[in-house]
């Protein structure tokens, strides 16, 4: 009798442990653990730390104290911050719209049977493969005030008679960095949309041909609607990448001239790391979150399975 009690206990606890592990919910949590740990350490922790820093007056080399929303109130009255918000929005909207237009055009072009198709597709991908900093430096040279190949070519052609100051005046600089961003971003949009185009069955175009559709009708009524789910994905990513862009700007202009090309990301870096005001820089970064969230919400609704996508497959 006396011996039996601990033995019984062992049986009960073992079976509880086993039962726990056979529970579907618990098992599910177990399986999620590695991925969740990864996400917490590498995404949630830095994000949380950044948000916490934005509420402190931390400086490099000195742990900050909680100061509430003081950083944000300060930024509210900072014209450079508002300029960077304007720049970021301009940069994102203009670059994304043009990237979409050119990318879609290229995708439609590459979806046709053209000579050297594989070769041309490979070439289109090139800007995407080159490291951003490398292409930024190349653009820096192309847009250089003295040695610009563009200015040189235009002068040789007799179109202009003195060098264009691409990166030296605010609007020229904005146009130049947007151009570089478009150059770099088009391949991603084009290749992804091309992949989307290839999922549209050929027989739909044949059916439409017989129904009497012109090329434009086919694009308008078949290609475009069937491509919308992919467009939503591509444009969400494109907007997020563009909004948070840092490398291109930092390598080409460092935000100048007179902050004309400062994006929120570059301004945040300048204030936090170079200026040493970690709290203020973190606040600028945190201020990006509402914009990014709204972009994600937008695509969340755009990405929801449309009614026609529900149900079984098409064939």
């Amino acid at each position: 009798m006396v011996d039996a009690a601990p033995g019984n206990d062992a049986v009960v606890s073992a079976s509880f442990w086993t039962r726990l592990n056979e529970n579907r919910t618990v098992l599910g949590l177990w399986f999620m653990l590695p991925a969740a740990a990864f996400l917490i350490f590498f995404l949630a922790y830095p994000l949380g730390l950044g948000m916490w820093l934005s509420l402190t007056d931390a400086k490099i080399g000195r742990a900050g104290e909680f100061i509430g929303f003081e950083n944000f109130t300060w930024l509210w009255g900072d014209s450079v911050f508002w300029l960077s918000v304007f720049n970021t929005l301009l940069y994102t909207v203009v670059a994304s719209v043009i990237k979409f237009a050119i990318g879609l055009y290229l995708a439609l072009l590459l979806n046709n049977n053209i000579a050297f198709k594989a070769f041309i597709r490979a070439i289109v991908l090139l800007p995407f493969i080159v490291p951003t900093v490398l292409s930024a430096i190349a653009f820096w040279w192309i847009f250089d005030s003295q040695f610009s190949i563009l200015s040189w070519a235009l002068i040789e052609l007799g179109i202009i008679d003195q060098n264009i100051d691409f990166l030296g005046t605010p609007n020229n600089a904005r146009a130049s960095v947007i151009f570089a961003n478009i150059w770099r971003g088009v391949p991603f949009v084009a290749i992804t949309l091309l992949a989307g185009l290839q999922t549209v069955p050929q027989s739909l175009y044949e059916a439409a041909t017989i129904d009497g559709a012109s090329k434009w009708d086919m694009f308008r009524h078949i290609t475009y609607p069937l491509l919308t789910p992919i467009i939503a994905v591509v444009m969400t990513f494109s907007v997020l990448f563009t909004f948070t862009d840092f490398q291109l700007i930092y390598a080409m202009t460092r935000g100048g001239p007179v902050n004309a090309t400062h994006l929120m990301a570059t301004l945040s870096y300048q204030r936090a790391i170079l200026g040493g005001n970690l709290g203020e820089g973190a606040a600028i970064s945190t201020a990006m979150i509402p914009f990014l969230l709204s972009a994600i919400m937008f695509s969340w609704f755009g990405l929801q399975r449309r009614k026609w996508q529900q149900g079984e497959s098409d064939d």
């Binding site: 069955p201 027989s203 739909l204 044949e206 059916a207 439409a208 041909t209 017989i210 129904d211 009497g212 559709a213 009524h221 078949i222 609607p225 069937l226 449309r306 026609w308 996508q309 098409d314 064939d315």
Partner: peptide, 18 residues
Amino acid sequence: PKERDIAMVFQNYALYPH
């Protein structure tokens, strides 16, 4: 095709999914 005044039914139906 559109001027030939014909209609065609395809093996995989080719219905417009949207």
